[in-house]
């Protein structure tokens, strides 16, 4: 028993050793290719200002220093704060509305649902540039230009097609009997959604949050057009650091790195909800 566990008999072809080695070499080469920009980002951000120049961009710094990060943070901080204040509500509200949409389209069918759903999806394919000017005019009329609330509203609305799609796809997979059961137990639509459907939909919620947070955080165009200097999100602020007369590469790189941390963080934190099995136990063994 013990020896069997230590040396399991594998079914494998004669060439498998070579095939495996080759496969790993190819994969490693592709990973390196993929990571080259990240390498330049990291090393440039940690270089001494004097060492930064395009001709020496591939070289490692003589000494690693985090000083540049400290230097750019005060400039970046207001934009960073604005982005958090904007992206968090934009992604939460958009995900909740998307969950309600998806639930109704998947499980609380109404006449015409098959027409409404494609129409909602249509929203994903409208180019932002096409509606930029009318949108700004409309928000000006509503007195929502300049501050963050207009930007939040726009991100909520533009997130709805994708969040609806994510939740609808998820809710389609859950059993109809679960919804029927909640109804017979006395729950109406809202309470069925809140008590039964949403708790099961945590994986969809995580996907939706990651997607929405990332796209709201990374957005530049809406932030530039709809906000004034005090309310600039981090992407616009970043552009200002990098967009001066002489480009201080190390500062640009350090700022970019800082600005990308929240999206990475959201992925790391939310990613664990991706796990499967949240439906386990609902149905027959």
């Amino acid at each position: 028993m013990k020896t069997a566990a230590e040396a399991p008999t594998r079914i494998r072809s004669r060439w498998s050793a070579y095939v495996t080695t080759t496969r790993y070499i190819v994969l490693f080469a592709l990973v390196c290719l993929f990571l080259i920009p990240v390498y330049v980002l990291l090393v440039t951000a940690m270089k001494d200002p004097a060492q930064v120049s395009p001709s020496r961009m591939w070289q490692l710094p003589d000494s690693f220093s985090l000083d540049t990060f400290g230097a750019v943070w005060p400039v970046l901080e207001p934009g960073f704060r604005n982005s958090v204040l904007m992206a968090v509500p934009a992604s939460i509200i958009s995900s909740l509305l998307g969950a309600a949409n998806g639930f109704v389209l998947a499980k609380w069918r109404f006449p015409g649902a098959d027409i409404v759903f494609p129409l909602i999806l249509f929203g994903m394919f409208i180019p932002y540039q096409a509606i930029l000017i009318p949108m700004r005019e409309l928000l000006t009329d509503w007195n929502l230009v300049g501050g963050l609330s207009g930007l939040i509203l726009v991100h909520i609305i533009y997130g709805l097609p994708i969040t609806t799609l994510i939740f609808r796809s998820y809710f389609v997979t859950i059993s109809d009997e679960l919804i029927d059961s909640a109804q017979v137990d006395g729950a109406g639509m809202i309470r069925t959604l809140a008590f039964v459907a949403l708790p099961i939909a945590l994986p969809a919620f995580a996907v939706s949050m990651i997607w929405q947070f990332t796209s709201a955080w990374n957005d530049f165009l809406f932030g530039l057009v709809l906000t004034s200097t005090n309310s600039w999100p981090v992407t616009v602020a970043l552009n200002n650091i990098a967009g001066g007369q002489v480009v201080p590469f190390h500062e640009a790189m350090a700022s970019a790195l800082l600005a990308s941390i929240p999206t990475l963080l959201v992925y790391v934190l939310m990613g664990r909800f991706f796990m499967r099995g949240l439906m386990a136990g609902a149905l027959k063994g």
Binding site: E177, S181, A182, F195, P199, M279, G281, A282, K284
Partner: peptide
């Protein structure tokens, strides 16, 4: 009150 074939227990 109804008992379903799949039991339809609320998983969470």
């Amino acid at each position: 009150a109804m008992v379903f074939q799949s039991y339809a227990l609320y998983p969470r």
